[in-house]
Nucleic acid binder design. Structure first.
Lengths: 227, 227
DNA sequence: TGTACATCAGTGAACGCGCGTTCACTGATGTAC
DNA sequence: TGTACATCAGTGAACGCGCGTTCACTGATGTAC
């Protein structure tokens, strides 16, 4: 997306809504969610702030649009990464590689586009705001597909299939956050790389590995339980 | 911490720096990092904004102080959780329980004090800003200790000890984020609970489970490698 | 023990900024007859 | 085919807000003699 120059044909824009969304995405890319403002978007399109209110109820709605843009771009990066997974007869191997590729794409995106990544996960003031539906069709969908494949291929037993994608997702997402804004943010590229490898290894072994003994499992459940 | 009422004895405050830090922490608690401002902190202490500049170089420095407060409180919650881990002769069992308790404390804190949690991980404008040293003495230290214990007890082989704490931390942190501001934010308490159990299970199995076959490992490394 | 004075920790007013949002308006568009 | 007019998509000016930060200042404190 390279709208940039505020070219206008006449008094009417013709596609102002989309132009504002593009501008919002560029602002998010450059400065994160805090930089996504109605005034800045209007300015960059070359239009009065008031004009934006013809197309958005308010600031919150523009930010929501920026979030969705960020998710789309993230999904694209992950898709590219997935395309490079080698074909092979071994379904388990392929599914695990897909999983690793997804993780890598996730981190790549977080690192290459920190502004967009932060925007995708920006805290939303309105607690009732709906979940962006791009998740289900984008990044999360890719992950779920890989897990299904892992189960079909026999690596991940059906009884341990539930929430497998959440556990995997958490690991990769947390890693991205810790290295982006968290206490690992000053680590060099190599240790970041090794951490990604190690995290994905732990996830994969954890999904396919041996089950815990019954009483240990009970202990952990007890500790982890609410209240 | 319950400073609240802007009581002043005379012209001089006597402990303004700490009072401002306390106020900053309360602002963070109530409204997250965005609510931590010099003016608001001064206001709540009952002092002129200018006065704050006697004790802080600027806004950034006050926010940093709030972050450290947030970390301290987080460490406290995790410490309480750890105290409830049952003593037992089985060192492995105990260490794994400690790990689960740490994870639970982490999530409990994120849920009970979202403002503080977000503040602890707030994006810092200055890329050179140092890592809060409270990490090493607080939450992260607890995790490292548990991992050491796990290795000493024989559950986690020495060759797979490196980065184990990072992998575990990532899983729990990611989970907290996904449920706090992320796409799982509208999930009910029960599914949140089950996700925590499952994530911790995956981490623990992943740490102690069987190693991957050499060539699969090579494949994953290849995919996960930089560039 | 008393006093002059340097130092410290606050005040009060002001600066400029960018923001979200609203108002009455006007230029362009397109449709009914 | 031409024209009146409703509708739509913008403008321009203004509102009030809270912010970070700086200035010259003043009240309180404590130390040297």
């Amino acid at each position: 997306v390279t709208s940039s120059a505020p070219v206008r044909t006449g008094y009417h824009h013709g596609d102002l809504r989309n132009a504002l969304i593009r501008a919002a995405a560029e602002l998010a890319q450059a400065g994160g969610p805090g930089s996504v403002t109605i005034r800045a978007a209007a300015r960059s399109v070359g239009v009065t702030p008031t004009a934006a209110y013809r197309h958005f109820a308010g600031h919150e709605e523009l930010l929501q649009a920026a979030k969705e843009q960020a998710l789309d771009q993230m999904s694209d990066v992950m898709g590219e990464e997935l395309l490079r997974v080698p074909e092979t007869g071994d379904r388990v191997r392929r599914a695990l590689c897909a999983l690793a590729a997804i993780g890598r794409g996730y981190l790549t995106f977080a690192q290459a586009e920190p502004g967009l990544f932060r925007t995708a996960f920006a805290h939303c003031a309105d607690p009732e705001s709906p979940i962006e539906e791009n998740w289900d069709t984008g990044p999360f969908r890719r992950l779920t597909d890989a897990m299904d494949e892992l189960t079909d291929a026999g690596y991940l037993p059906a009884e341990r299939r539930p929430l497998a994608e959440v556990a995997a997702w958490s690991g990769v997402h947390g890693l991205a956050m810790l290295y982006l804004d968290g206490p690992l943010r000053l680590s060099d590229a190599e240790s970041r790389q090794r951490a990604l490898e190690r995290t994905i290894e732990v996830i994969i072994v954890g999904l396919g590995g041996n089950v815990l003994s019954a009483d240990l499992r009970a202990d952990l459940t007890e500790i982890v339980r609410d209240r």
